[in-house]
Design a protein around this nucleic acid. Structure first.
Lengths: 215, 215
DNA sequence: AGTAACACGTGAAGC
DNA sequence: TGCTTCACGTGTTAC
């Protein structure tokens, strides 16, 4: 534990100019072009220590940010800040993994019905309506499933005229009626492909990849 | 970017013992009790630089751990490691918050049915069975809801003899028949209190508190 | 007192 | 070559 020492740089602690030679921030305003060996050395040293100070400030700035991002990090020394960060990051990753697992197949005792198989079928409705297609898809329910379906539909030409959806036992069954796909089979193909993506998308695929979560 | 310099401490870089006076790890095995000013000074300096080295090792050890915990941190200099950590931690927190929000009320377009109000009602079954109580509770579905109910039931005296559960539209309706609560109304009161907790529990309350998530 | 944490400047090494 | 990053030892401050 630490109570933020006062010797922490309040601002930019500017050069004290205590060198033997006149040295300023621009590192060489000397009019004598042929600088002496000693002078160049001092200038280089100054430059060096300056950039080192900048580096320290960069690092300490990130420490400061880190302290604001995660709780309970203020008043901790650097080593503890890092250790606590590691701990909390692990916890966060575990949390995400757990939530994901919970959303994927619900609680174990919640699986009263057999898992079922993901299915997708398209069907041309010959009847009163012209060019009406009925799409039936069933898959595991997940947050964002309907959003994904909406997005998929907006990527094809037709428009949704009716929908029936039911979620039970952690699975989702959806029947969609789409009109105006076009005459050829291109519309059907595109629709099938788009909906296939929705069905096949793993839950939180992005999260899993981004943070190297298990499974 | 950085390609892991070779001057990284391979192992414990032990004292080189280059001082004017014999100095070892125990910092003073000198037989001459009245240590000279100079000697104590050197010993103190050694001690100081040693503890500083230990501090550095502590910090660098945590950097190493951090590099293994989060992806894409290897081959990054310290400042970038911290910056990337900040970025990824923010992303993780956002992810948890999003998932939580998604699980809390589903996607906005998923709310085709009115949200409904959380309800809990207990009812004494007068009939063939002795001391049978029917509890009906409906609330928003969430991961762990059934676990919570199970826990709640295990905390009261009676035992579950029958249950009906249905989840639709992100909401969960549950009817539980409990037997052996006891004759008085204490059993009913306890059961109601336990189930009330289940209904009122916010989703992922723990996560939210632990990581200071918004809302 | 003595310990712990920090900033600083410097030499070394890699690109 | 210069620029960057690091480890190191030291001076300083706080408890």
């Amino acid at each position: 534990m630490l109570s933020i020492p006062s010797y922490y740089p309040k601002q930019i602690s500017f050069p004290k100019g205590q060198g033997v030679f006149p040295v300023n921030t621009i590192y060489s305003k000397s009019f004598f072009k042929p600088k002496s060996k000693a002078e160049t050395k001092v200038i280089a040293a100054k430059k060096h220590s300056d950039s080192e100070r900048r580096r320290r400030m960069r690092i300490n700035g990130q420490y400061a940010t880190l302290r604001t991002v995660l709780p309970n990090l203020i008043k901790m020394d650097k080593a503890s800040v890092l250790a606590e960060t590691v701990r909390q990051v692990r916890e966060l990753k575990r949390a995400v993994a757990e939530v994901e697992a919970a959303c994927r197949h619900g609680d174990s005792d919640e699986c009263v019905l057999p898992g079922g198989v993901d299915k997708l079928s398209l069907e041309q409705c010959d009847g009163e309506q012209e060019g009406l297609v009925k799409a039936t898809l069933s898959c595991g329910d997940r947050p964002g499933l309907i959003s994904d379906m909406t997005r998929a539909l907006s990527s094809v030409k037709g428009r949704l005229v009716r929908a029936e959806m039911v979620i039970v036992g952690g699975r989702s069954k959806n029947v969609l009626w789409i009109q105006g796909l076009g005459d050829g089979k291109e519309g059907m193909v595109a629709l099938r492909r788009a909906l296939k993506v929705v069905i096949d998308r793993p839950i939180f695929a992005g999260l899993r990849k981004r943070f190297h979560l298990p499974q």
